[in-house]
Amino acid sequence: MMLRLVFSSLALLLVAQGVLAQEAERPPVSQCQLIAQALPQVQFASYNPTASVGGSVIPAQLQEDVTISFVGHSTFQIDTPGGVSIATDFNGWLRTSRTPDVVTMNKAHSSHYTMNPDPAIATVLQGWNEARPGEKIEHRIVVGDAYVRNVSTDIRSWGGEFEPNGNSIFIFEVAGLCIGHLGHLHHELTDAHYAEIGRLDIVMVPVDGGLTMGAESMSRTIKRLRSAVVLPMHRRGPIVDSFLAMFDDSFDIERSQNSGFTVSMRTLPKKPLILVLAGV
């Protein structure tokens, strides 16, 4: 009888360990991704990270403010309520105000990546698959109070042909906000891309007028994403005006005197805003 109980306990322990292992391997659930678009009254699942300050645990919903600053070209610095600093399209020579905890990169040109990032940067995420060119790279990672994931898109080479999965749209889920950086987007997105991206409250969009996509194609992409805040980047000459001209009065347009701003879920504008930060 005792031997049977030992075997039963061992079996239960092995089952429990198997369940825990499966849970550990399971990626975080995105609060931004459209996972059941066709179903009525669907609520998105989400995780609720916490932070500790002075020994007290502060619920994530009380940590609201995210600061976004334009550094240059297509690099933004995102500072989370929990103290995580993220730099987009990090090239190593555009300097952020502090050493980032996370950097994302895209392959298009040397102004979008570096092969020699500062060793002090804990998390470096390339938007292309260095080991298996042409195959998708997949990032699903939680750093502090930020969840970072990517959606692969194709990229146009200098010769004009397209290379599969050479670019990534990086999505940062922070304090309830869904923040997307389109990278060096060279083509309009498919329905599958939009489903994989999900909701973007804030989107960083290249407005060079041709090195990525023309103003008309890019504006169609932005209108479909229906983000609350649109942040132009990757400007060449007066192209930002061509991009702005594609939008009617259903969008507000603001040219800021500052290179950065602070935002939260509660302070998102009700009407879509194209915010041109200083330095763009």
Rank of each mutant, 00 (worst) to 15 (best):
Q31M: 00
K271M: 02
K271N: 02
F162T: 06
Q43N: 10
N129G: 00
Q22D: 08
K107E: 06
P206T: 11
G82Q: 05
R98S: 12
V42P: 00
S256G: 05
V84M: 11
L20Y: 09
T212H: 15
I35Y: 03
V174E: 06
G209T: 01
D101P: 00
N48L: 10
R26L: 05
H193K: 07
R26P: 01
P269F: 10
T114C: 09
H184A: 15
Q43T: 13
T104A: 13
L200C: 04
G18R: 00
D89E: 14
H112M: 14
Y47L: 03
D89P: 00
A16C: 13
G209M: 09
L225W: 02
L20D: 08
Y194G: 07
T88G: 07
S46M: 04
R95T: 03
I274L: 10
P238K: 11
I86H: 07
G144Q: 07
L277W: 00
L182S: 07
C32R: 03
K270V: 10
R255N: 06
M204R: 02
M213D: 06
R156A: 04
A36S: 15
D101K: 05
S227I: 03
S217Y: 07
H181R: 02
L125I: 10
P28V: 01
E25K: 15
N106V: 13
